[in-house]
Amino acid sequence: MKILIVDDEVLVRRSLERVVRKQGHEVWEAADGVDGLSKWREHDPDLVFLDVLMPGLTGPQVLEEIGPSRRAKVILMSAYLGQEKISEGSVLAVDMFLPKPFEDVFEIVRRAEELLS
């Protein structure tokens, strides 16, 4: 499967990338929303880990650009849930919320794979 990780925190990207790759998936990383959007369009991933607060474009803005008829499953990650204004449309459109900090990175990837199966 093709997986895209969009997060401005390098260690978050790295740890997710390591686990996902180990599970045998193809992985791309993006450090901000703009880069994330272009990699999304370029590689058409099956699943996207998407951070909310990022320089350039925020996660929800990226989702808006992609539009409602996307193919990829989306996991929205945020330490700001409940405080950030995430418009309802985009909230409904994601497949899973992941509050940060997360406890166990392996567990996260396991749940992501469940989404794909």
């Binding site: 401005d8 925190e9 260690l11 978050v12 740890s15 997710l16 330490a79 940060k100 900090p101 392996f106």
Partner: peptide, 14 residues
């Protein structure tokens, strides 16, 4: 702090 901490912890787990 939460963001980098999440990264540190996750990477340490990996």
């Amino acid at each position: 702090l939460n963001n980098p901490l999440t990264g540190i912890r996750s990477l340490a787990q990996v």
